[in-house]
Write a protein that binds this DNA or RNA. Structure first.
Lengths: 342, 342
DNA sequence: CTGAAAGCGCTTACAG
DNA sequence: CTGAAAGCGCTTACAG
C-alpha cells in the first residue's frame, strides 16, 4: 500500500474525472452510478489509495485530530485517563496527539501552540487527579482559553473567567464510601491519613466526616493524620505515630494506596494483623500495587477512564454543534474495589 | 491568539506580497530586508498568526508528526517507553500521534491506516517488554513493512523479511546482573522464578545461568521455578512450593516485581526475614510497587525511556537521510536499582 | 530585494 | 450522472 497515491491517479486509472473519483470514494453530496463507483473503488484498491485526510481538512476546514495534554507519563492516573481518551477518540473517528507538559506551565503553553499549528480540532487537558496542581497551573487554562480552540479539562477546579467543560473525580463521595464501608464492618475508631493541602485530601476527609455524621458518630481528632505527601515512607511514619498512642484505631482510611502500603509496614512491625486488628482501605486502586500488598488492599476506585471518555465525547459534541454549547462541570462518582484488607 | 489567521492576511497588513511574508517568517531560501521582515513579523504578532503546518506539509511533502502504536495503556512498561518517545519527539520538533492497539493485530492494522491517512512521517511501534507478544503479532510488523512508511519497533524480536530498526531490552544481561548481585552477597542457593514460555523469561534465566557459570557454580535444578504468568498470586504459589521443600534457597531472583511481591507474602507466612534469611531481587523496577513492598524491593531496571528516545532518534535520522539508512538492531543494557530486599 | 504564478491533494458549488 | 474550475493555506522556482 502506498500512501502517496493521489486521487488524480485513481481517477486517471478509472477513466473518470478527478471530482467524480472524489464523489465515488466519499459518497459525497453527488450521486454516482454504481458502475462508475465500482470502477473507481477498484482502481483505488489496486493502487492502494489512501486519501490524504490532511488535504481534505484543509479544504473542508475540519480535521479529525484532537490534542491531549498530560502532566506526566509515570503515573497510573495519567495512563487510565489517557486510555479512556484514546478509546473514545478512536471510536469516534478521531486520532489523538499527545504532549507531556511535565507539570510546567511554559511547557504546556508551548504544546498548545504546537497543537494549534497542526490544527487540532480541540484539546483535552489532563491535570493531576489528586488536585496537587490545582491553582498552580491556572495559566494553562487561561492560555487555552485565549486560543480559539475548544477544550475540556479534567481534575482541575474550574477557574473564574474561563468557560470550559470540566470533569472531576468526586473525592468527597469516595471518602464517604470508604468510611461507610469501615463503619458498616463495625469499626468505630477509624483513623484518616491524607494530605490536607491537596484538594483531594480535603474532600476525602470531608467524606470521612459525612459518613461519621450519618452514623451519628464523631471521630476523635487525634485520629486525623496529615502526611505532607502520598508516599509509602510517609504512610509508615504516620502509622508509627498512630499506633504508638493510647487511643488505638481499629481501622484506617488512607487517602492513597501508597500511604496504605507504608501503613501496612508499620502495622506488621507491631504484629498487628490486617484486617482483624486493623482494617485498611486505600484510595486510587492502582491494581498491580493493591494486588501485590499483603494482604491485598481494598481501595477506592476513581473513574479515570470514564473521565477520559467523557471528556472526548463532550468535546466532540461541542465541535458538532458549537452553537448550542455551554460550559458544563461534571463530577463523577468513585466505587469501592474490595480486596482483603477491609 | 487566533489559529485561523492566514499568511495572506499577514501580508496584506504588512503591505507586502504573499510570498514575501512567507520568506520573512520562515527565513526561507530568499533574503528579505531587515525592515520588511520586521514589518511582517510585527503584523504576524498583532494578528496572532500561527502558520498552518499541515498546509506547509502538503506543499513541502514533509510533515512533523510521527505515529506511536502501543499495545496497552495500563502498564508502566508502556508509560515509560511512551515517555521517552514523547520527550525525544518534542525535542526534535515533532509531535506524536498515539494509538492503542490493545494487543490485537486488526486494531493495529487499522491504526496504521489511520496514521498513514494523516500522513505521519514514520511510526514507532511498541510491543510488550516481556516479549509475551513476540511471534503472536508478527502481522503488525509485516503490515507496517507493506506500507511505505518508515518505522521502528521495540521489544519484539525482528522477523525474517522485514527490514526495520529495532530496539530491545537485554534481558539476559539483566538476569546476569541480578544473579551476580546475589552471588556477590554470598548467597549460594539462589532460586529463579520466571515464565519459561516468554522470551524475556528465558533470557533472564540464561543470564542467571551465565552468572553461576562465571562463579564456577551450578544451580540445583529444583531451584528453577516456572510460573505461567507474572502476577503476585502465582509468585505466592511458587514461594509456597519453594520453601516447603528440604532444599532451602537463601535467595530468590524473581523475573518480575509482581512475582517477587507474591513471594514476599509466602516468606512472611513462614516467618522468614528478607533479606537476612532470603535475599530477593525483582525485575522491572516499577517504582511505586517496589517502594511499597516490605521491605522495599531491589529490582532490575529496564532501559525503557532510553528505548523510547532511541527509537525516535533513529527514526528521524532515517527520515533525514533515507539513502544511507540500513536496518539496525540494538540491545540496551539493564541496571540494578538497589533497595532493601537484597 | 520583491512579486506573480504554479502547484501540493483535496472538496464542492457550478454548469452541462 | 459527469466534468471543468475555483479555492483551502502554504512554498518555491521563475521573473523582474
Amino acid at each position: 500500500m502506498s500512501a502517496n497515491t493521489t486521487l488524480k491517479q485513481v481517477a486517471t486509472r478509472a477513466g473518470v474525472a478527478w471530482s467524480t473519483a472524489s464523489y465515488a470514494i466519499n459518497g459525497g453530496p453527488k450521486p454516482v452510478s454504481d458502475e462508475t463507483r465500482e470502477r473507481v473503488l477498484q482502481a483505488a484498491r489496486e493502487l492502494g489509495y489512501s486519501s490524504n485526510l490532511l488535504a481534505r481538512g484543509l479544504v473542508t476546514g475540519r480535521g479529525t485530530m484532537i490534542g491531549v495534554l498530560v502532566p506526566e507519563m509515570h503515573s497510573h492516573l495519567t495512563s487510565y485517563q489517557l486510555s479512556g481518551v484514546e478509546e473514545a477518540a478512536q471510536q469516534l473517528g478521531y486520532i489523538i496527539m499527545l504532549s507531556v507538559y511535565r507539570s510546567e506551565i511554559d511547557s504546556a503553553l508551548l504544546a498548545q501552540r504546537n497543537m494549534a499549528a497542526r490544527r487540532m480540532e480541540g484539546i483535552v487537558c489532563l491535570f493531576d487527579t489528586a488536585g496537587s496542581l490545582n491553582g498552580r497551573l491556572d495559566g494553562i487554562l487561561t492560555g487555552l482559553a485565549e486560543m480559539d480552540l475548544p477544550f475540556v479539562s479534567t481534575c482541575h477546579d474550574p477557574i473564574a473567567g474561563v468557560e470550559t467543560d470540566c470533569f472531576l473525580v468526586d473525592h468527597e463521595q469516595g471518602g464517604y464510601l470508604a468510611t461507610c464501608h469501615l463503619l458498616e464492618m463495625g469499626r468505630r475508631a477509624i483513623a484518616f491519613a491524607g494530605p490536607p493541602h491537596l484538594n483531594a485530601g480535603r474532600d476525602r476527609l470531608a467524606g470521612y466526616h459525612r459518613a461519621h455524621d450519618e452514623f451519628g458518630l464523631r471521630p476523635h481528632e487525634e485520629l486525623i493524620m496529615a502526611p505532607s505527601a502520598c508516599i509509602a515512607h510517609l504512610g509508615e511514619e504516620v502509622g508509627e505515630e498512630l499506633f504508638s498512642r493510647s487511643l488505638r484505631p481499629d481501622a484506617v482510611f488512607a487517602a492513597s494506596d501508597n500511604l496504605a502500603a507504608g501503613m501496612l509496614r508499620s502495622l506488621r512491625r507491631r504484629g498487628m494483623s490486617v484486617p482483624d486488628d486493623v482494617a485498611l482501605v486505600g484510595f486510587d486502586d492502582n491494581p498491580p500495587l493493591c494486588d501485590a500488598l499483603d494482604p491485598p488492599l481494598t481501595s477506592v476506585h476513581c473513574p479515570l477512564e470514564e473521565i477520559g471518555r467523557a471528556s472526548v465525547h463532550r468535546l466532540i459534541e461541542r465541535l458538532n454543534d458549537p452553537q448550542n454549547w455551554c460550559p458544563q462541570i461534571r463530577t463523577l462518582p468513585c466505587t469501592l474495589t474490595g480486596r482483603q484488607s477491609a
